[in-house]
Design a protein around this nucleic acid. Structure first.
Lengths: 335, 335
DNA sequence: TTGTAGGCGTTATCAG
DNA sequence: CTGATAACGCCTACAA
């Protein structure tokens, strides 16, 4: 048991007044006389009084805590995102409970349960790659814990989500490729089960159409996003008789593996083969031969917006109407 | 106000038994009859009862929450560290409150205060670069909130700290350089105020001595760790009449800037100039021309150990004796 | 302007 | 084996 810090009662006792008066004085209640208020505050100071938040949380049924669940902080996208979440939370006097799912659905659930036990006032979440069961959404709704998804959002309706529209970036990418004469443009996509992959696939088709380029299934390959999967994907493309001269890939991590591979095969970037991928990770700046471009998805903007929506919901206790916000993604050319 | 979830009292009322019996039944207290226990559990199930942790926290004076303060999650070192902290915390049924200081001492203090208000059971912290005032350590001691520092630890005594011994890595680095004939080995160090810089400086001198190489002050330059500072540092070295052929730098971020700079100047790595730095960041694997090596500081091992010490302290409530754990750092050669 | 009483949900203590 | 009571620290009607 910890040595207990000063409480309102003690202050009251020392001052021979009632606890309620002390409470009111400390909260600047108008009906308390100035002198009393001063005396109380002085005594509070002396005793190093600090309100016991756990008691207040308990009474107010509010913890001033939000939970954030995301796949992995080692991805720059998410570390940017959480920084911004922290900022918004700070502005609202909230604190952030953190949980990484590492793309494990079971772990996601477990984190959600922990958060629920801790009575967080709301949850921000980016889904892992393998999450199928969205049952927790209804569960949270029943407990009236608002949740806002960002980046990797569920496809269901009736939930708050903030994400980036992959098609705008894809169009710019294909357009840039087409502008310098590329005809055979491939797509290294993520797992087909992912919503994000489906969107990329569609955007890819649409963009080709827009540029009056023909779509050929053989130019679309999938990776499970492991290093081996990425290598296999690029191998399949390079083995094609009409091998693509330009490739859009799922994200920069895929491109890192792929670039390394083609380099080993003696191919030179921006001469033999061109790359664009999603994410716009900062490290490209340091690479000797970065890809032609990368598509920015604005983790900070997404995170901030998602957090703002969450706090609005926490404030109003009205979970009946849900919001969906979509940001454009944007191609950023390198070098 | 939220719709209130079921409470023990309700269960008691519905079952026409006392709240204490319900409480005991739910906690598998041995003195409660099997039938009653079953009935209670069944009813709890039906009402979707979930214990109100905020009440329990309040009563038990324990929140099962630890706070983690670190400079920036965008550094891979810290994102690895926090993952491991999360793991240990999970094993102990604890949750993690997160705060990034961004090397801002004021923000650090503010986070500490928030954590204190939230009554965290303990704190893990890696200091920011600019923290001078360690007054919060005594403050926490008074509130009996244990704190364990890791990686960037204060130089004062009487606190728990886990960090890595920079000298072992430095020795390996200098030795490797010397082994391939380097005589003029420079050090790009961090800000002189940093303990970590002082340690590097000493380790550098010692290592030179050990290799029977002479120490020359002109080969030691400092950077404030900004990009401009890094560039300036390498410029100063390159301008020297006897310019160094090998450089140990403060960390991989410095080396990234420096490598980029020397490349632009037409110098070729591992021919004209050789680099080793601290951190062993994963991205080197993707670089066409990585430095000769990088010194691993084991963020995960440090974090785990620090967390374990913290939980031991939380368990025993004995803050009288403090622990210091030092891990060796280790050179990892690239390619 | 201040005090009294009651309650938030849970558990520990003491009685029965 | 079970029940009543009190207490954790704070807040707030209501009363004075």
């Amino acid at each position: 048991m910890k040595k207990k810090p000063a409480t309102i009662k003690e202050i009251a006792r020392k001052l021979k007044i009632s606890a309620s008066t002390v409470s009111r004085a400390l909260n600047n209640h108008p009906s308390i006389g100035l002198v009393t208020t001063m005396r109380v505050k002085k005594m509070a100071e002396e005793l190093h009084y600090e309100p016991n938040q756990t008691a207040i949380f308990f009474k107010q049924r509010r913890t001033f805590t939000i939970g954030v669940i995301l796949p992995s902080l080692s991805e720059p996208f998410f570390s940017s995102a959480i920084s911004e979440i922290e900022n918004v939370a700070g502005e609202e006097n909230y604190t952030v409970l953190m949980g990484q799912s590492h793309d494990d659905a079971a772990r996601e659930l477990q984190i959600i349960h922990t958060f629920k036990k801790h009575r967080v006032d709301g949850i921000l979440m980016s889904l892992g790659k393998n999450t199928e069961d969205l049952g927790f959404v209804t569960m949270l709704k029943e407990s009236e814990i608002p949740i806002v998804f960002f980046d990797c959002v569920p496809r269901i309706e009736g939930v708050n989500k903030v994400y980036s529209d992959l098609s705008s970036g894809m169009q710019e990418a294909i357009k840039s490729f087409a502008a310098i004469g590329h005809k055979n443009i491939a797509l290294i996509n993520g797992p087909e089960s992912l919503l994000a992959s489906q969107e990329r696939a569609e955007a890819y088709k649409d963009a080709l159409l827009q540029e009056k380029l023909s779509f050929d299934v053989k130019y679309v390959v999938n990776t499970d996003l492991t290093e081996a999967g990425n290598i296999e994907a690029i191998e399949r493309l390079l083995m094609l008789p009409d091998r693509p001269s330009a490739i859009v890939s799922f994200n920069d991590f895929v491109t890192l593996d792929v670039i390394k591979y083609v380099r080993q095969k003696g191919l030179v970037q921006k001469r033999d083969i061109f790359f664009i991928s999603y994410a716009n990770y900062p490290l490209w700046k340091y690479m000797e031969n970065p890809p032609m471009g990368s598509i920015e998805q604005y983790p900070d903007k997404q995170a901030r917006r998602a957090a703002e929506i969450l706090f609005k919901q926490i404030g109003t206790k009205d979970d009946s109407k849900t919001e969906t916000v979509i940001f454009d993604s944007k191609l950023v050319l390198k070098n």
